[in-house]
């Protein structure tokens, strides 16, 4: 937590904007400085009813219509990822709304969860968590997946090669791949790359123009709250305390910018997800509460790396001393 807070302060200090921007309510226009401070969302699981009276939840619909112009338009026929005999093509299933796909960046998972001896209906809007130290972004081999100072993690679809490494290293395997589009087609489409990765970008363009994400405005029950990170975190924690509830996303993977709050425990929710709705294909997301950031351990090694130059200098000093002293028996030119 300490690091997260420090990084937040650093970023806000960098942008020169106070974090204490006014907490915005639905449809309220945000301050012009929106994209300069770090933003977060609170998803109140108790409030979300999954819009079960409708065909598609309104947050999902809003996300789709807002992002439609960014959806992939693959050129066919799409070649396989040689030597594998497959490629990932969702373009024939654009209408799927019950999972993540390149054409569906948020979905609501409907569950029946057993908790405290009772069966309870739970509805979970799922999408990118926008991590504080996102492995998808830091480990992108082409540096085209950015953690922006405002918080959103944004994939540059122009530069993405579609290797899907980001999906592999994401603890929730969020980014989804569409083959047949993007830069790889211009290089060696048979042998390297695989398309472009797509996921929620927290409606980064809306944030830049001072508006809130589409899913937030669209929710008829006000289940998604949007605002400055610190404020959202405080609100989520207070809610949890008051309602004897649970929070998810504040510490997972080293901290994210999405805080689920619920009176049903997330362990129980995850158990229900695993037993009811995981089909072993990407795009359905677990809610495991035991998620450590995969970059924590390399961070330890990195700190150890500082010793390397010093050790090199010391060893050189020793070698040079021996040579100059004439101890190095094989230093003599001839024998």
């Amino acid at each position: 937590m300490e690091i997260t807070r420090r990084s937040f302060l650093k970023r806000t200090a960098l942008s020169g904007v106070a974090a204490a921007a006014v907490l915005t309510k639905t449809n309220q226009v945000m301050a012009q400085s929106a994209a300069d401070s770090e933003w977060a969302t609170v998803i109140n699981v108790d409030k979300c009813d999954g819009c079960t009276h409708l065909d598609t939840p309104l947050c999902t619909l809003a996300c789709r219509s807002k992002n439609e112009h960014n959806f992939p338009v693959p050129e066919k026929p799409i070649v396989d990822y040689w030597p594998q005999k497959k490629h990932e093509d969702w373009s024939e299933q654009k209408n799927l709304t019950n999972r993540l796909t390149p054409y569906n960046w948020t979905y609501v998972q409907n569950l029946v969860v057993e908790y405290n001896g009772q069966k309870k209906k739970v509805h979970l809007p799922r999408r990118c968590m926008h991590c504080e130290n996102p492995p998808c972004s830091t480990l992108c081999p082409f540096g085209v997946n950015d953690k922006t100072p405002a918080g959103p993690v944004v994939i540059d679809s122009q530069g993405c090669f579609g290797g899907a490494k980001c999906r592999d290293v994401c603890p929730w395997h969020i980014p989804q791949r569409q083959a047949g589009v993007g830069l790889y087609r211009k290089v060696a489409p048979d042998y390297v790359g695989g398309g472009v990765m797509y996921k929620c970008d927290m409606c980064y363009d809306l944030l830049e123009s001072g508006r809130e994400p589409a899913c937030v405005s669209a929710c008829p029950r006000g289940a998604i709250t949007f605002g400055p990170k610190e404020e959202m975190l405080r609100y989520a924690r207070q809610w949890v305390q008051k309602n004897n509830g649970h929070i998810y996303g504040d510490t997972e993977n080293g901290g994210t910018l999405t805080y689920y709050i619920s009176t049903v425990s997330f362990d129980a929710i995850n158990k229900a997800i695993m037993s009811q709705d995981m089909d072993q294909k990407p795009g359905k997301i677990h809610m495991s509460t035991d998620i450590k950031n995969p970059l924590d351990e390399p961070a330890g090694i990195a700190q150890g790396m500082v010793i390397a130059p010093l050790a090199g200098l010391m060893a050189a000093g020793l070698s040079a001393y021996q040579i100059m002293k004439g101890d190095d028996s094989d230093e003599n030119n001839a024998s």
Partner: peptide
């Protein structure tokens, strides 16, 4: 450096 937590 970029991979270390908290660095931007």
């Amino acid at each position: 450096y970029k991979n270390l937590p908290g660095n931007y």
